[in-house]
Design a protein around this nucleic acid. Structure first.
Lengths: 242, 242
DNA sequence: TAAATAGTGTCTCTAAGACATTATGTG
DNA sequence: CACATAATGTCTTAGAGACACTATTTA
């Protein structure tokens, strides 16, 4: 059978719904947090879920993810990357739903503006003490997002996305320790980060109880993916969820 | 408005079509090849394309990819991994189509069985001399698949998927050179691969013009992702297409 | 001056790369 | 033996990790 634009029948195949879900991370009080929303309707009423929604027919996946991100947090122009697409037939009881999951990283100094905290149905949770029974397959998605976040930390400058404009080298080290879940040597960390040449010294100091800390700025002109913090033998499950 | 399974209206949102496209690689005559199909219908009639098709409502994405793979090549149980999901609104002139792309690696010794060559509308192309104007956004997908393949080669045992059951160490080195696009030192390659402990010696030798070659087998029990061939400073564009 | 925190220096050891050498087959 | 290809050995050097040390502030 010959077809062209005029004769093509677009509704020949049954179609799934497609959503975009965005796992949004930020740093609060030096701790990694994730944004979750409380579902008010069937299905999974009363469960926390990763924010997301159906795509519009005229927007790209990235655009849909940015739209969701801005709806939830008000932020624009932050790190955003496609994570994985989840499509088990029974993952949503309403109908066949395929979810394209994204990761977003919101800088530490932006967060106050966007989202109310305690009483709202949208909330930042510390990753370490987050609710475990999320709606749908969102536990799987969140765990995968975390594993990807850890993995990418080691060969990208992703960690800088979590920090405010200026920061100390030991704050940066804290982030690496938090996300990698292990202690790093102070001296070696200083050495590596300086050798990499991706930091720019500022004239700022921050006072504290001991010796004041020099503050630094991330040199965005050096590109975003050139810095390799450490290579690991065991990359864990970077490429498949679960 | 309250909802439950009975009252939920599944057709409230307009839905895109979802396809699964599978970039299938193999090794022929020691060279990396990719499988393409010739389109016989509008749109892009007469263009080569990555094999794929619409998903069924009752199968997962992985199942759909395996179904496509088997339809095209007859192989089962090969390496298969989700690559990325492409969803630009205008990427398909028929209707809104979102494509979940996969990579598959077919072992070198299987290929004769599956696909006819010259005269068919399905064909293995050497990656180096493949057609460049593919249908839809398939050039983008294929380039991204190649970049992912190269990148994963360095920290997984992916390369072994391309080889037959038994092989020589220098054949393995050839694959690395092919895909990485650079020469590797023979001695260092021997050293690394032996230290990794992922090969098992067989009693087989293959005769040639010079000294016969020892043949080896891949030790699958050692896990699939533990071997790191080399870490590179420049990971290129591993996480975003283009 | 003691305590607290920031930042530097140095030693060792592993592993990557370059390259030389030996091994084992054929005509 | 000459040639071809396979496989191993060795030397050097860069970099990671461990850890000791110095610097600059406050109480």
């Amino acid at each position: 059978m010959e077809e062209n634009a005029a004769t093509y029948n677009a509704s020949r195949y049954e179609r799934p719904s497609v959503t975009v879900d965005v796992v949004i991370f930020t740093l609060l009080n030096g701790e990694l947090h994730v944004l979750l929303v409380l579902r008010r309707r069937w299905p999974y009423e009363g469960y926390w879920a990763i924010p997301g929604g159906f795509i519009n027919m005229d927007e790209s996946l990235d655009q849909a993810a940015r739209r969701e991100l801005e709806e939830e947090t008000g932020v624009q122009d932050v790190y955003l990357e496609q994570l994985y697409t989840f499509g088990e037939p029974q993952r949503d009881p309403r109908t066949r739903v395929i979810s394209v999951a994204y990761i977003a990283i919101v800088p530490a100094d932006d967060h106050e503006l966007h989202v109310s905290d305690e009483s709202s149905d949208v909330r930042w949770f510390p990753v370490r003490t987050r609710p475990t029974q999320l709606a749908f397959d969102h536990d799987l998605i969140l765990n995968y997002a975390l594993s990807r976040l850890r993995s990418k930390l080691e060969y990208t400058t992703l960690a800088f996305q979590l920090l405010p404009e200026v920061f100390s080298i030991l704050e940066l080290k804290d982030i690496y320790e938090q996300i990698l879940g292990e202690k790093l040597d102070k001296g070696n960390f200083y050495r590596k980060i300086k050798e990499a040449g991706i930091l720019e010294e500022t004239s700022l100091l921050r006072e504290g109880r001991g010796r004041p800390t020099r503050l630094w700025r991330f040199r965005r002109d050096r590109g975003d993916k050139q810095f390799v913090f450490r290579w690991r033998e065991d990359r864990g499950s970077d490429d498949e969820p679960e």
